[in-house]
Design a protein around this nucleic acid. Structure first.
Lengths: 349, 349
DNA sequence: TGTTAGCACTCGATTCTACCGAGTGCCAAC
DNA sequence: GTTGGCACTCGGTAGAATCGAGTGCTAACA
């Protein structure tokens, strides 16, 4: 349950009353999407002071960068810094029991390969929260190879099928300009398997350099496999509820920009990775470097298997998103997902 | 080059002048997104008649359902029927030479597995046209099995890796509540391979029902494989430029609906399939049954390998999309894609 | 009979004005 | 330090006036 973030960038704590006021402003603005005035803060938040007092505090909060005024004579709106303070001082929340049941139900009944589970999880998360969800599956860079077989499609096309210890399967076609005998393919397959068994993509094997046809096929096949970048490749992203983007923002242009980001898988992976590595579980507004996501907040939660980071789940919403609920949902789902993969045995039958 | 559609639903041909006027209205409205008035038609289209004459023709066109008036004293806007007529009488166009080079360039340099090629093709199509693209890869229901291997992840988890004649590879995990000896897995793998070799998912094999551990593992594995629906499974959809949806429509709600449709892969597959089977290459407005896509037009072009339908490419845009260019682009790309897969040998090396 | 010019009319879009009211900033009093 | 009072600001809304693109109709013309 250690979700707390290690990142408040030296934002000196506010005194209790300022904090209460800030929280009230953030909460109400998240709710209404409107600037919040001093009087509604004074009446809603349980501080028994007059609007005038609230006002003077708000001036201070604005000076310190937590609030902003769209224009004179409008209420206040939280800045990114304001949201940051709010999130950093959020009391931990748990998701409602109905949703807990929904998640339990889901994980009790999902079947299928890892990819299917992740895909469906992304849909689950998005439906729970009404935000766009990101589910990132780990790459298989450090998984060891359990099997590598060459299968002949025709005399010129072989397919290298590799099975990794984490259950991932990859295929790579290998083309030979000359026709190859089935027996030679079989022999190459044996050699490749012997060569690669137990290795990982991170630690590449040396291929003996003989010059017969079989050897050159072996070389080609292994080279093709190794051509994959071990870090990025195999990291899969599943995006759930991308249509939610259209609900979250009212400017069509903003929607377009956000969707454009989501289209680039690599970018999404590194975005999630960055936030994860920053030690925080939330990136607000411009905290992640992406201009186009300036009006977004991103929540992430790591998925771990045996203490190893094995992926992550994320939620993308507007900066005025419902942090408490979204954090709780991401937290719960990532935990359950982690548990799902280690505990698979017990539950299946 | 046989793109012409077999579908004009008994829309009696318009006389030459009406046709010219309709075309002018459609063209201008596609360009400007504004209602088109009689005077601009009279001056732009090369029919030497006065606006008054055009007006009376427009009244007729409206009565016949080709045009509509947003309100009295506004110009005319094409109806779905109007677009349909326009598309059905479109002179074939070819894409600009710059784009032709772009496509040739692309197909000369793409490398990688089928999936990668399709994915990149979807990006290409979307960038060429500024519309959202759909690329559907065929399922492997009728491909024969070239190899089926059982790989042991651990004593309780086996992975059935199946290679199909079309180069597709699937994996299915098989769980056994009891620990299985590596030698038994190997034996089961042999049996499975022997059993499935040369079969397809459409024609399922009978599994002998002995009751030892190996036999039951074989049974489980084959059952898991056969559990896939042969028709739908394996049909992959690649969507390129989904952010273009946000450009194409100005209502946020429309954008949301369209995105929601695109999220459902199965739905997209059957949508494309339906249009393809209707014999037409364009579905406009409500012609495809989907309420949420009422303001969309969908262009499809089949991808064939050896005369067999092997997939399709599509473009999704607003009903006022640039049909000529989009049709030409889809046409060109689908042809090149078809050629790419049969001609792969010659080009590599 | 088909075409055209002329003209009154319609109706959305734009602009302007007035005005309301939520909310502020400031100040004097408590 | 807190509060009530008060003048002030300024976005939003409503109504009126205006503009103009475009229509439908009619009467005249070829």
């Amino acid at each position: 349950m250690a979700r707390r973030v290690a990142k408040p960038p030296a934002s000196a704590d506010l005194d209790a009353r300022k904090a209460t006021i800030l929280e009230a402003v953030v909460t109400e603005h998240i709710d209404t999407a409107q600037p919040v005035g001093s009087s509604s803060v004074a009446s809603n938040a349980d501080l028994s002071v007059s609007p005038a007092t609230v006002r003077s505090e708000m001036v201070a909060l604005e000076r310190e960068g937590y609030l902003a005024q769209p224009h004179t004579s409008a209420g206040r709106v939280p800045t990114d810094k304001g949201y940051r303070y709010f999130v950093d001082h959020l009391s931990d929340a748990t998701v409602g029991s109905a949703q807990q049941r929904q998640v339990a139900e889901f994980f009790a009944h999902v079947r299928g390969e890892v990819e299917d589970v992740l895909e469906q999880t992304s849909t689950l998360l998005s439906e729970m929260t009404s935000y766009t969800s990101l589910v990132v599956g780990a790459g298989h860079g450090h998984a060891t190879i359990l099997s590598a077989q060459l299968v002949s499609l025709d005399a010129n096309h072989q397919l290298l099928v590799t099975v990794f210890s984490d259950g991932a399967v990859t295929k790579h076609s290998v083309f030979t300009p000359y026709a190859i005998l089935p027996s030679d393919v079989a022999e190459a397959s044996r050699q490749i398997n012997a060569l690669l068994l137990g290795t990982s993509l991170e630690h590449r094997v040396q291929v003996p350099s003989r010059s017969d046809q079989v050897a050159s096929l072996v070389r080609d096949a292994v080279a093709t496999l190794h051509a994959e970048s071990p870090t990025v490749e195999g990291e899969q992203v599943f995006i759930g509820g991308s249509s939610r983007v259209a609900e979250a923002f009212n400017g069509v242009e903003t929607v377009r920009k956000v969707l454009a980001i989501l289209e680039q898988e690599l970018l999404v992976v590194s975005l999630v990775q960055d936030v994860l590595e920053s030690g925080s579980s939330v990136a607000i507004g411009s905290e992640h470097g992406y201009e186009s996501l300036a009006s977004c907040a991103l929540i992430v939660a790591p998925v771990t298997i045996d203490g190893q980071r094995a992926g992550a789940v994320g939620l993308l919403g507007p900066t005025r998103m419902k942090y408490r609920e979204a954090l709780a949902a991401a937290q719960l789902v990532s935990e359950q997902l982690s548990r799902h993969f280690v505990g698979e045995d017990e539950r299946v039958q």
